[in-house]
Design a protein around this nucleic acid. Structure first.
Lengths: 241, 241
DNA sequence: AGAGGTCACTTGTATTAGAGTTGTCTACAT
DNA sequence: ATGTAGACAACTCTAATACAAGTGACCTCT
């Protein structure tokens, strides 16, 4: 049984690679050739096998490196649902159910730190079918110049005139309440995904709070975990007090 | 492994930045170049990496300064539920409900690409109260050396002997089925969070598939979105076909 | 006190040079 | 078909140097 040297070397290198993070640069072909006691051509053959397998890649003048995204964008790649709909040629529709200025519920007042808020409740449809009931609270000051027509035409964040930074999003399950069941066209007490989102401006102050209710089975969240978390349980899950 | 100097320096600077407030001015390129013993070009390349990451910015004639927010922790700090429990002094308990080798269900066979699998169904408890029913499927080959006792004592991923890379996690809502309701101690047909996770090894091959069922109101997911996504709807949500 | 100029220091940009790397080719041996 | 040896081109990284252009502090003159 004759052994093919460059295949041996490919195997050896492949096993080393498992212990190396993405983006890491390998020793040069010259170094590897002296280390293995073979010519540069043989080393290249082995590396080219690994390249075909998608494990490594090379740039002329730079070197060989472990393939895979160099951990840049962590969860940017999730994408928004508007993007998904657009790609499928579906224009999302918004129907305003309620629109009024009022005193904030306790929880909202705590989060936003104000008493008077604008509350907008909307039904979102895709392809004619309802798929979300969204309630947004924002400080009355910020929402003063908004009309019912505005929020029906354009997404909320565009009209606030505040630079936003990020958000914290909580995802849970629940039974749908009567009003939402009617809006979504689902049986009473059927399961829904209920999200709460707190959006903050560039200075970290919460400026927007929203609740999103989605019917189960029509919607789900997808999260990419680029690095293996040492847990059998889903990352990000937490127990409610 | 070879080292690229400007990447090292970028790493070093990045770690220093975490201890520095927004707006702070960095030492000049000249100072940094003497400190690190490299040329100004190399320092600039490192700083430009950090600029691309949004960590710092520069004004000609003024200097480099820390941009906007620390923004650091992408989702690393979300932490696992084990960590949360540990911090609260609670030791998680695992109870194996089922443990057997069998032919895979259709969906599992499709994902893992094998017919014979090891299936383990476990009940997780915290503080004596059940909070999750987890079912794990893995190729029979990989699970051959595992015993029922093993999976009760230690988490799964530790014992596979395979280097893992990451996972795709899908979160949805559902009504609990009869068996799970009994295990979790919740009323029949009450809402639950249902997760499906596909874990892949360093070469991108799926090696583990698992389903996690959590009772609603006791559990929820938290996702930090560091950058403002231009969407009123939660990031990562998708419509089920 | 205010206006304006000067000067040291900073980043932005370009050029040169050398060492090191991959990409590709030819010739030759097993 | 597999492997070795060598050569060259093209590219990258880093150093060294120079100059343009912006910033901010200080100084001087009115």
């Amino acid at each position: 049984m004759r052994t093919i040297r460059y295949q041996q070397i490919a195997d050896e290198l492949r096993s080393r690679l498992s212990a190396v993070g993405a983006g890491e640069v390998l020793p040069s072909e010259a170094d590897l050739s002296t280390e293995f006691g073979v010519s540069r051509v043989t080393i290249r053959r082995a590396l080219e096998i690994l390249r075909d397998e998608g494990l490594v890649d090379a740039r002329q003048g730079f070197g060989w490196y472990v393939a895979g995204e160099p951990l840049r964008q962590h969860l940017d790649e999730l994408g928004t649902i508007e993007g998904q709909l657009e790609r499928r040629g579906i224009k999302p529709e918004r129907r305003v159910i309620e629109f009024d200025f009022r005193t904030a519920p306790k929880r909202v007042a705590e989060v936003l730190g104000v008493e008077q808020v604008l509350r907008v409740k909307r039904l979102n449809l895709a392809d004619g079918q309802p798929f979300a009931v969204v309630t947004v609270w924002c400080p009355a000051e910020l929402g003063q110049h908004l009309s019912r027509h505005d929020v029906e035409q354009r997404p909320f964040y565009e009209m606030l005139g505040v630079a936003l930074r990020g958000a914290t999003q909580t995802i849970g399950a629940d039974s749908v309440d009567g009003a939402d069941a009617k809006l979504l066209g689902v049986p009473a007490a059927s399961p829904v995904l209920r999200c709460e989102r707190i959006t903050t401006d560039t200075q970290g102050r919460p400026v927007l709070m929203s609740e999103h209710v989605f019917p189960a089975r029509r919607t789900e969240f997808v999260v990419e975990l680029p690095t293996a978390e040492p847990s059998v349980l889903p990352t990000g899950l937490r127990l409610v007090e």
